[in-house]
Design a protein around this nucleic acid. Structure first.
Lengths: 341, 341
DNA sequence: TTGTAAGCGTTATCAT
DNA sequence: ATGATAACGCTTACAA
């Protein structure tokens, strides 16, 4: 019997409708199994009481939550926003709810968040990138909870993944930059430790350098957390060398916008005096001044595909594996030939 | 008895440690009540099994979840990011977990999200702004679930609130603009229906106009969803009048950045040819070109205070009511005197 | 200090 | 088509 002022329960509804709790439960979950007349009676009892099923009780009894958990590195900028949005839209269409939390790029926080999400009964997990402690993969296996990695495609990863080839994508851009005549190149990267996307993008630049006969160890590489302000500081640092670079490739658009801003403050004209590029193609890249030349990532499609793949793993024991997504360079105004060309 | 390959339960831990489930539960929740020796034994059983308490079961048994739900209008831009971040940090310090969902500025979605969060056992709710269907307030009361409104302070609101006076804040800015000599003023607002913040900011501008002997009905007001692109279109529209305004006040920084960008595309110099202002003081405002003159909102403090107030309501039946927070104008480069002054 | 056992609100398996 | 009833995994009086 429900106490006054608490949320009504299945039992309250059943009593009011004059049926058993089992019937009420069926009305809610398998309306087809119940005859029209009873269904109507139950429905009005539900409405009258403002009944809402108790989620915890439902999860316990059904042993599934129709909930997917996602742990993303940050919500502070738009890097993951579009992809996650598409991910959640696709999940919603299939009757799943998304629970999101962020790890602030901290491995320990990510591990804690994974536990929290599993404890909350998530049926499956979306993780960003591959770099994490082996213990986490062991636990996931032990708990038998399907997980999918996004934002990074690796052919031989431990977990199925939906994403793009960060290394090749950045190499393509770097090749283009070098092809324009740049030989002194600065790199402003995110912190690469524990972040395969950042690491692979650096590798991509190194690949392109080697390929063009440049010495990869001549690259000036600065690593800094993905924040606009840090992009600005790193730009100052990279430009303060004896022979400053003529092009600065940034690990993402956020860093690039910071660099762009600092260049302006330093009285440098982009791209006449210095070229700057980004990665991701978030909205910021379009509205920056000058608009940012960057690598376009198909965020929405990645989110959609990740959702389908994960649902496939949950419902059809599908492998979840797919093919890498294609990226492409978006040429805007921040990249040009080197000044002395 | 737990089946192989499922997550271990309290019972498994109890058996392994040779104690009752009650004792294991105490070790986890009130370690003080248990003697050192047993505690250690239990702890190693927990570790050995990789035990994680089942959240749903815990919520059912304890009848509280230590979870707070927040429904914010959007995650797509940074408007709510900082405040929410501070909110969640403060909650975390007090042992609460935050569950966030977004309503996309849709009243029906918000209502659905509230139900979902309540069904999931949220102990309390954070809502943005006051405008919503009375039924929602009735339900909240019926379910006896404490809720707090943030981002808008209203002295006689139905729910306790932590926020600032949107009307006065915008009036202060408008007064400043008019004081500079502007008489033809355009307004690019968010959709005001169902959004008291947007509505009150418009009212603030109207207040300032009246106060200076201008006719509030002479203001050109365009309402459009908070997106950069919309700010740009609205700017075109507001400038296409016979006698265009010399200053355009935007309902938030996102719209203002769009307007700024379009002004540049139109070959207008800001602020020489046209002044543009924002509201919120998000990071975007600082890095825009030119940097945006805007109203600074103490987002982090608001988030912190909201968390404290809500926890107070949950734990000490405190009223949750506080005083309005102060805002202030941040003068940067997008506002100047009118061209003909 | 520790154990026993009664719930918590559903779902799902049997009967009927 | 519907009704009993046994789980589900945990917390918390109450007993010992």
């Amino acid at each position: 019997m429900s106490k006054l002022g608490s949320a009504p329960t299945l039992d309250d509804v059943a009593k009011l409708a004059g049926v058993s709790t089992a019937t009420v439960s069926r009305c809610l979950n398998n309306p087809g199994q119940v005859v029209e007349a009873t269904r109507l009676r139950v429905q009005s009892a539900v409405d009258a009481l403002g009944y809402m099923p108790n989620f915890a009780a439902r999860v316990m009894a059904a042993k599934r939550s129709s909930t997917i958990g996602a742990i993303i590195p940050t919500m502070e900028n738009a890097i993951f926003a579009r992809g996650l949005q598409a991910f959640q839209e696709e999940l919603h269409q299939h009757g799943y709810t998304l629970l999101v939390s962020s790890s602030a790029y901290e491995p320990e926080i990510e591990e804690e968040q994974i536990k929290t999400l599993v404890a909350r009964g998530a049926d499956g997990l979306l993780l960003i990138g591959h770099d994490r402690h082996p213990r986490i993969y062991e636990n996931l296996e032990r708990w038998k909870i399907p997980a999918l990695v996004a934002w990074s495609y690796l052919p031989d990863a431990q977990l199925p993944c939906i994403g793009f080839d960060n290394r090749a994508a950045m190499a393509e851009l770097a090749n283009h930059v070098i092809g324009l005549g740049h030989t002194r190149i600065g790199v402003i990267s995110g912190i690469s430790a524990g972040n395969d996307r950042a690491r692979l993008r650096i590798n991509g630049i190194q690949d392109a350098a080697s390929q063009h006969g440049l010495d990869p160890s001549d690259l000036t590489i600065i690593e800094t957390p993905y924040e606009i302000e840090n992009g600005a500081s790193a730009f100052s640092e990279v430009m303060s060398q004896n022979i400053p670079p003529t092009a600065v490739l940034c690990g993402n658009d956020v860093l690039a916008v910071g660099a762009l801003h600092r260049a302006m403050e330093m009285g440098l004209n982009v791209p006449r005096d210095i070229s700057i590029t980004g990665f991701d193609d978030i909205e910021l890249a379009r509205i920056a001044t000058p608009a940012l030349t960057t690598v376009h990532v198909p965020h929405r499609e990645m989110g959609r595909r990740a959702a389908s793949a994960l649902i496939g793993m949950l419902e059809n024991q599908a492998s979840g594996h797919g093919n890498p997504l294609a990226t492409h360079i978006v040429e805007r105004q921040s990249l040009g030939p080197p000044p002395d060309a």
